[in-house]
Design a protein around this nucleic acid. Structure first.
Lengths: 138, 138
DNA sequence: TATAAAATTGTAATAGTTACAAATTTGTAA
DNA sequence: TTACAAATTTGTAACTATTACAATTTTATA
């Protein structure tokens, strides 16, 4: 159940706590780019004494070790993502959904010709998603 | 002096006010992706009665008419950009500077194969800029 | 099992942004 | 040019996401 998450934390020499395991598990099993608040609300059901600060702290430590990523796509709040290969994101203005765009830009390296050291790449697209376009037409 | 900005607002049928003209001029002449607060602080010098809300309102209307864009690159506050052709941005974690990356990704359209209608494209890179890398070595 | 270091909790503070009502300004038409 | 309705500006207060901090609890280790 939790062994896989224990393993991840151990590999990164992060102290193991139930809260961190739950946050990590939640992100692994909910790939819809939740906010810190959504994670907090969900985990509070099984652990009513959970603190919002703990969720933020857990997200921070997981992010620092590159186990998860945060997205700044919305501009008002951060979204969190279980780390996978580089991919991009589409934000639908209508329904608010954030959809994975599973293509890396093959020309990405060209952007780096300025001599900067690039550690993160974010591709954000915004518009109206396929489903909302369909609804509109009906 | 201001004629060019008057012209832009007229073309978009936006009511002309000194505040909007100043905000637009500021963004045209300061291409360093300032925050709303930075714009407010700068313009207050010549117009002490300027309200922060007015800056936000002006930015909102200019953005709605696609005259300026906002960047969510930092995650904590919005940055504003006088509209130009599609280009990307690099945020230096060390000095905080946001640098223009003047290359469009030629494979951008491929991302859209999901059938979504894309209205905005943001490419954000984060790392250490050339200048900060140089300083470190010294 | 004892202990030091680190994490969790709860509350309060902070930062960026938005809501709102009163006063002022804008564009238009007589 | 003047008058007026509609829109904008202003100032203050509210709101939301996030961070700071001190007291308590838990973790990893010996």
């Amino acid at each position: 159940m939790m062994e896989q998450y224990v393993k991840i934390l151990k590999e990164h020499a992060i102290k193991i706590t139930p809260q961190r395991l739950e946050v990590l598990k939640y992100l692994d099993t909910h790939r819809n780019h939740p906010t810190a608040y959504e994670i907090y609300e969900a985990l509070k059901k099984d652990n009513p004494s959970l603190s919002k600060t703990t969720v933020y702290n857990s997200l921070e430590v997981l992010q620092r070790h590159d186990i998860i990523h945060s997205l700044t796509i919305s501009g008002s709040e951060l979204r969190y993502d279980f780390r996978t290969e580089v991919h991009h994101h589409f934000l639908c203005r209508k329904c608010g959904k954030i959809i994975d765009i599973d293509v890396g830009c093959p020309y990405m390296d060209e952007f780096l010709n300025g001599g900067h050291r690039v550690e993160e790449v974010h591709g954000y697209f915004k518009g109206i998603c396929k489903e909302c376009l369909k609804k509109k037409g009906e």
